[in-house]
Amino acid sequence: MIPVEARSGLADIEVFRAASDVRHHITATIAGERHAISPVSGGFVVLRPRGFKEDMTSALGPLGWGRPVAFVDDSWGLARFSAAATDSELHVPQSSPSTVSFVVPERFRTRRIAAMEPRLQRRCPPSKSRHQTVYAVGTGPSAATDPQRVLRALGPVDDAIMSDWTYENTFKDVLPGTGVTPHVLPYQFDDFEANIQQVDRTLRNLASDGVDRVGLLIEGNPDTYDVLDGLSVAGRDVQVTPGIPIGLLAAAQNAELFHDDPLSHSFAYISGLHDRHGLPSEQFLGELTCYLSAGISCVLVEMYKGDIELALRAMALSSGKHVAVLMNDYFSPAESTVMVHDPRAAGTARVVSAARGGLSTMLITGEEPR
């Protein structure tokens, strides 16, 4: 991980470091390839239990919807109980001491396979060149302040692939003079499949040129809603250095807007672009309403084309009063913020939709604003 400044609550590296430790224990054969499936590769919920009475619904609800739950500081043993109650898998990191454990429902694995298989079937033909090692490194907006940390995380590579957004906003002042050749690819906010395919194609072209060690720089966490979600592993080994998803960092930036940190006890991190992930709108609305009513703050990513109307509807349907914060193009010169206090106000959905940037995230929380 490229360290970022310390964050309060649960929006820190520990969950994602633990996920990278257990990812190889959750595997599936997809399109003839054996893939590791990270518990944070799709939507997930993070929970710091306060007790069985307070958090039973908070834990069982997401598992019923097919979302993994990361339990942090689980002194009550709620993770083991929840795994047994829902016939889910319990995964505890073994490589290093951790305060995080994951409960992963079977429905999550099934959904991941269904999402990844079509992408892998469209992959480039396997390269006949020698085996390639890919160093997928999660980076954060503070990476540019310490170039040496970036280079150490990349390992012994001479070539690094990254999006144009990552290069322009994080690395354009880091790589020159280091001997690392950047391969900058245009990031397409509205065509995620194309992003995966162009990374796969670039890796294979480099392999054909004899490049057997390549860096893959990901703004956020490589395992969370990013190009590893369907990248072929044929002829290559992928080593993951975790990071904090940029949408979660953006949400953490706004904790000061509230009396209490919205991410201190629990949060759900899911995509607002439910169609892309094969989820019906009924589930998206039901999940958000369920989480918000249970006191779980929701961080919705991929809101460039995400379902603003359903997100605001869930906000209105949920018990209690909620506030939404739309964060656009954070950690770039185009950064902007829009707050919504009344989702029922006329024209709210239209105004919020019009304000969206290329990289948009929405935080919905029941915490009281200052």
Rank of each mutant, 00 (worst) to 15 (best):
D226T: 09
Q283D: 15
I246W: 05
V211M: 06
L249Y: 00
P125M: 03
L263H: 04
L317A: 06
H341Q: 08
Q188T: 14
L249H: 00
P333C: 04
T361R: 05
A252T: 00
A294P: 08
M56S: 15
L288G: 12
V134W: 00
T170Y: 07
G177R: 03
V15S: 00
F258L: 01
E309Y: 00
G210D: 12
R23E: 13
G42E: 09
N221A: 11
G64P: 02
R17E: 14
F81V: 10
L248Q: 02
A268S: 12
G61Y: 04
R112A: 01
T145K: 05
A136V: 04
V238K: 10
P182D: 01
H265P: 01
G138T: 06
V150F: 12
I113P: 01
V22K: 04
L206K: 06
V174Q: 05
G230V: 10
R236C: 06
D191Q: 13
Q132W: 05
A251C: 11
G9L: 00
N169R: 07
I270R: 00
P245D: 14
H322G: 10
C290Y: 11
V299F: 02
Q283S: 13
L203H: 05
C298W: 05
V214C: 03
I161A: 07
T110D: 14
S38P: 08
D55Y: 12
P176C: 08
H91W: 03
K128I: 12
S281Y: 04
L257T: 00
H131Y: 09
L231P: 12
T133S: 11
A153W: 04
N195V: 03
R149T: 14
I2V: 09
L63E: 02
A234E: 12
V157A: 03
D223R: 09
G138Y: 03
C298E: 06
A19G: 09
G306Q: 03
A85C: 01
V150R: 11
V323Y: 06
K305W: 05
G358M: 09
